[in-house]
Design a protein around this nucleic acid. Structure first.
Length: 1133
RNA sequence: AGAUCCGUAGCUCAGCCUGGUUAGAGCACUACACUGAUAAUGUAGGGGUCAGCAGUUCAAAUCUGCUCGGGUCUACCA
């Protein structure tokens, strides 16, 4: 006999995977999958670089499965898919990790440890877990090229970043400006949001809060307020009331912000402190906070200092937008914040002291009017910038380091603020004698009739996690990329990107683009890409370096021009490492001959990763051609949390520098949650270890589970039981189907040597499964092309389980072990083989191991793919349209439904399937249906063990029918009359239905109007057959003749007997082909049954002798339909 | 605070785009059956205010609005 198909010894996915992995390594399967496509159209994929300073988690497995399956699929579709790996190696997480490890803080860097040493530690830390990552990459079957990855800390990589930055600089898109950042005066440093999110930084504190009164200026905008004051008003002053918990910011006030659609009121009343008559403006929703209802329209004339109840009356109501642009007087004018000397000096054309409108205003607290100091609040800064009310921050073009913020970096007021000058705004020095300047400001306002309410207010406020002192939001200088300049273009290009799911692109990403702000690149850390900008001391001259060569030229030039020791360590070889501290030692020279130093900033690590399309190839310094062919990407995929991270930075840089998208399709996968829907975190201890999972259940089962359980973009509740189910149900079934095939193919020596039997010569069921298979290929291809792997996987699951295993194989079993090796049997083998071979190619992208194992086993014998080592080197199956026969698939569905119904009827009357029954009755509603049923009649009969099928013609009066409206058709036609018609139809008699069927239409009278019903507008189905047991599903009805005649009973006995003997054969461990001899005692009716069907029985059990005797002293006791027998079964020969 | 996704059986998910009258499947549970591949499978059973409210419509799980609950991102140094 020829070589045999390898049979598995059990379904052990992890073991199979080990074996396949070894083969892949040995045969360089991945490399070949790429090289075999040399010259083919490239499919460009970008690998988002992971940071290898942490352990890989299960959430990495899902996005990498997604990436891998798309790349494998595209390879099989004939593209060449190169996958260059990469590592993200800069950034705060790495630095914090190192700090923790060394037990130091940011301040210690440069003091306790040199920057050089520190960065060396970071460099060592970044690839700490690279081995683990390589390991998981291998074990999960992720094909990516890790031999030549891009690494973001490499000089070549950084050089490309510099080039990009210099391109931006040349276009005027890189600029220095001021932004409001959390700042700790006590520690003298800015804080990252990460630091601000440390536990315990937000504390409840009691601060002095004040409702300040800003006196309006009478002009066009405010005129209507003054007009509303009334004749009897004893005051002609109108005040805007604004509330703050940080009175120290009041001297810096430059605007008041209101909500455009919020209702405001002008209220006539008295100042509760000075008892002077005043008119104040606040949000109407907040009246209750300051005025008692009893005081409304109270006694104004009788009000004195002693009156407790404040009288008040609303003079007019208006919207916030009605006072947009209104002016008011500066609240606390001093020398240092005077308009002429300070504000205008700080900001050209500033227009301060106006009413602004913005959506962040609410009426939950305060007055509905927000005191706006652009220096000390991000929202304030934003709205202030929008309206151009100016800043105190002074960035002088020619002396940019001079700042004129009213509070200095130590947290104290500057000079020129009268009695508040040089006082700390909070007690930063732990001064025991500290007098709260906020209280003093409030007192001053009270005295000046400029405060309406002063009270202690408890709220949550961020504190510096190192000093425990409150944080200030403070303007600090930073470098920005002017992304807003090309916002429209970015929005426009985004519309050409295929987002999966689309909502992320339109919604989350689209909105993000709409509300884009300039990209703050600056980071004041140590381990990262340095900003390549050098400036002269006075800031008047600066240069942005775009390459190492340019820098080295600058180094030499500076040395020549400036002389002395300048750059002496870099003259010989140039710069060797583009990191701190080396770059900071470089002095360049300006055109006017002045020394220039590098600005201290590093850049956002997201720029590193967003620049990978260029930097991974060291473009434009090398690989120009390679770059051209691999930009933009056809496909990228990462977690949805990257939407505003990597997806954004890729898009931004591509738009800015190349006016192009960076990727054509992007799939954003959701999060992996634990089985209870909680985010996995080390703290909760619910993290799933991917190594253990893969070792235990196998990568294939894990991958299959991750992909088919939910759409990749939905969050996934990860549950190990789900993987077990996948293993058992999908892989178990596929495995069994293969084992079944191998078992018999080995017996018969089938190796696909015979010529391919044309479809038309194959039996109905073969043509059906092949039609189904080709439909499946179409479905899967469509889903995969649409980046819907979940649907692809589910479709295959359904096919393997319902069609292939539980219908085709089950119904065809006999064909494989009965009869000669010819004709029908070969057809069966060829059919099943084709199904298996096609299915493993379909699932190869998702479950690359098991599919390859089965493929290799099959191809080893048949060599249908000559010389092909792996399923991953084959082409993806292409549907054969000619094999698809919809009508065939439809009638097989009919057969399955009919069988299911008949089995259900058998169950109802408790007649087991081995007991043959005589007849089923099926009403055929139309000739087409009858024709369809007739073609599958034999299958149904065999499946449910019934001898004949009888059809009832539509015009019989035997069965009763039911009628219901075809809602889709009738709804459109009738509209509101639908209900009445529906009721009328439900009252139809059998005669009415018959008349409608006969005449094809029916005249109904609804509310006096006549409605003509067409036959096509109703659905008629059979309901019942009097005297028969019936069941129905949809339009299919079956009735079963449940009479068991003696003849049928005898046959049932015989079948039951066969079953018992087969069990004995199996238990005795006989081979499938062993011939046997049987001696049996049979009493009562059993003797007749057995002798009558002796021939049938012998054929079934492969017996050469079946002897019935009266007595047996030994033998196995068997029970056939409640009759006890004894039997001796012996192997012949 | 804003944006976005999600909410259907005890659990995991279909169905929603394109509205149609008994809302499905698998898992789990129970009983019976089938099996000369099966770790399967079939049949039957229990299990649902389709998160809630309002609207549009003859008709809403499906379309619209609001509310609630959960997740994520952003809110100026990942």
């Amino acid at each position: 006999m020829a070589a045999t198909y390898r049979e598995f010894t059990g379904l052990n996915l992890p073991a199979t995977e080990q074996e396949i992995l070894a083969k892949w390594t040995e045969q360089q399967a991945f490399e070949k999958s790429v090289s075999l496509r040399e010259g083919a159209t490239p499919f460009v994929f970008y690998e988002g670089p992971p940071s290898a300073n942490g352990m890989p988690g299960i959430h990495h497995v899902i996005s990498r499965t997604l990436k891998d399956l798309v790349c494998r699929y595209k390879t099989m579709k004939g593209f060449q898919v190169k996958r260059k790996g990469g590592w993200d190696t800069h950034g705060l997480p790495i630095e914090l990790g190192v700090e923790k490890e060394l037990g130091i803080t940011k301040e210690d860097i440069g003091k306790k440890i040199s920057i050089e040493e520190y960065n060396q530690k970071c460099r060592e830390a970044v690839l700490r877990y690279k081995d683990k990552w390589d390991d998981i990459t291998r074990k999960m079957g992720y094909w990516v090229d890790l031999n030549d990855p891009y690494i973001t800390f490499k000089n070549e990589y950084i050089e490309t970043l510099w080039w990009l930055l210099s391109e931006l600089y040349k276009k005027g898109l890189l600029y220095e400006s001021v932004s409001i950042q959390p700042y700790s005066p006590a520690a003298g440093t800015g804080l990252s949001s990460h630091e601000l999110n440390q536990p315990g930084t937000y504390k409840d504190v009691k601060d002095t809060s004040v409702v300040a009164m800003f006196k309006t200026v009478k002009d066009e905008k405010t005129g209507f307020l003054y007009n509303a004051l009334g004749q009897d008003n004893t005051s002609d002053e109108v005040f805007f009331m604004a509330w703050t918990t940080t009175p120290w910011t009041l001297p810096s006030n430059l605007g008041l912000t209101v909500g455009g659609n919020i209702d405001y009121v002008l209220v006539k009343t008295f100042n509760p402190y000075t008892h002077l008559p005043v008119n104040v403006v606040l949000a109407s929703a907040l009246l209750g906070k300051y005025f008692k209802p009893e005081g409304e329209n109270g006694d104004f004339g009788g009000y004195t200092a002693e009156t407790k109840l404040l009288p008040w009356t609303v003079l007019t109501t208006f919207k916030g937008k009605d006072i947009e642009g209104a002016s008011y007087e500066q609240l606390l004018p001093f020398e240092a914040n005077s308009f002429e000397d300070s504000i205008q000096y700080s900001t050209e054309n500033a227009k301060p002291f106006r009413i602004l409108v913005d959506s962040f205003v609410t009426t939950e607290d305060g007055t509905g009017i927000v005191h706006t100091a652009p220096d000390f609040g991000a929202d304030d800064f934003k709205v202030g910038t929008k309206y151009g009310i100016g800043y105190f921050t002074h960035v002088n073009k020619y002396d940019k380091r001079e700042k004129l913020v009213l509070v200095d970096l130590e947290g104290k007021f500057v000079n020129g603020l009268g009695e508040f000058s040089n006082r700390f705004v909070k007690n930063y020095k732990d001064d025991k004698a500290y007098a709260d300047v906020n209280v003093d400001i409030s007192v001053k306002l009270k005295k000046e009739n400029r405060a309406f309410k002063v009270e202690k207010y408890e709220h949550s406020y961020p504190h510096c996690w190192r000093t425990d002192k409150p944080v200030l939001y403070y303007p600090l200088s930073a470098w920005f990329i002017k992304t807003t300049a090309i916002k429209d273009r970015m929005v426009q290009l985004n519309k050409t990107i295929n987002w999966k799911p689309a909502s992320t692109g339109e919604g989350r990403f689209g909105n993000w683009l709409e509300n884009m702000v300039d990209w703050n690149l600056s980071r004041s850390r140590f381990w990262g890409t340095p900003l390549p900008v050098w400036q002269t001391e006075d800031g008047r001259e600066e240069v942005c370096i775009g390459s190492i060569e340019e820098l080295n030229a600058g180094i030499r030039k500076a040395s020549e021009v400036l002389g002395g020791d300048v750059n002496k360590n870099y003259l010989h070889e140039g710069i060797l490492d583009l990191h701190k501290p080396y770059v900071d030692e470089i002095i360049l020279v300006s055109p006017s001959g002045k020394p220039m130093k590098r600005v201290p900033d590093l850049i956002d690590v997201w720029f590193d990763s967003g620049a990978m399309p260029y930097a991974q190839w060291h473009f434009p310094f090398e690989n120009k051609e390679t770059f051209k062919q691999s930009f933009p990407a056809d496909f990228i995929a990462e977690g949805v949390d990257q939407t505003r991270g990597w997806f954004y930075t890729l898009h931004a840089i591509a738009c800015l520098v190349f006016d192009s998208v960076a990727y054509k399709t992007v799939v954003s996968n959701g999060l992996v949650l634990d089985k209870n829907g909680n985010k996995m975190s080390k703290r909760l201890g619910n993290v799933v270890n991917p190594f253990e999972t893969i070792e235990k259940f196998g990568a294939d089962a894990t991958r299959w589970y991750l992909i088919t359980n939910a759409s990749p973009w939905d969050n996934l509740k990860f549950d190990l039981d789900g993987i077990k189910e996948v293993q058992r149900k999908f892989f178990g079934t596929l495995y069994n189907t293969y084992q079944f095939f191998a078992l018999y193919a080995n017996v018969d020596g089938f190796s696909f040597q015979e010529k391919y039997i044309p479809l038309e010569e194959r039996p109905e069921i073969d043509r059906w499964i092949l039609s189904s298979l080709n439909t499946l290929v179409k479905t899967v291809t469509g889903s995969m092309d649409d980046y819907e792997p979940t649907q692809a996987g589910r479709a295959v699951e359904d096919f393997v389980d319902e069609h292939l295993s539980n219908w085709y194989v089950r119904l065809c079993r006999r064909r494989f072990w009965k009869g000669e090796y010819s004709g029908d049997k070969i057809s069966a083998y060829q059919t099943l083989y084709e199904c298996l071979e096609t299915v493993v190619r379909l699932v190869a992208p998702i479950s690359p191991f098991f599919s390859d194992a089965v493929f290799r086993n099959l191809n080893a014998i048949t060599n249908r793919f000559p010389g092909v080592e792996s399923v991953h080197h084959t082409d993806f199956p292409v549907a054969n349209e000619k094999a698809i026969d919809e009508s065939l698939e439809e009638r097989m569905q009919l057969a399955q439904d009919a069988s299911s119904l008949i089995l259900s009827l058998r169950k109802k009357v408790n007649i087991k399937v081995r007991q043959p029954l005589q007849k089923v009755l099926i009403p055929a509603l139309n000739p087409k249906m009858k024709e369809q049923l007739e073609k599958v009649e034999d299958l149904v009969k065999a499946e449910v063990n019934v001898k004949e099928v009888e059809y009832l013609n539509p015009d019989n009066t035997f069965i009763s029918k039911k009628i219901k409206p075809n809602f889709v058709a009738l709804g459109k036609k009738l509209g509101p009359k639908m209900k009445a018609v529906s009721t009328a139809l439900s009252q139809f008699s059998q005669e009415d239905i018959a008349r409608l069927e006969k005449e094809g239409q029916y005249n109904l009278s609804i509310d006096g109007e006549s409605v003509i019903l067409q036959i096509t507008e109703v659905e008629i189905s059979s309901e019942d057959i009097p005297g028969w047991t019936v069941a129905n599903k949809g339009s299919l009805t079956v009735a079963l003749d449940v009479t068991v005649t003696p003849q049928l009973e005898a046959e049932g006995n015989a079948r039951e007997f066969v079953n018992r003997i087969q069990k004995i054969r199996k238990e005795s461990g006989f081979e499938l082909t062993d011939r046997i001899e049987v001696i049996v005692t049979a009493a009562n009716g059993m003797k007749e049954s057995i002798s009558q069907f002796k021939e049938y029985i012998c054929a079934e059990i492969l017996a050469d002798k079946l002897e019935i005797v009266a007595e047996l002293s030994d033998g196995i006791e068997i029970e056939v339909n409640d009759v006890l027998l004894k039997a001796i079964v012996s192997k012949k020969g």
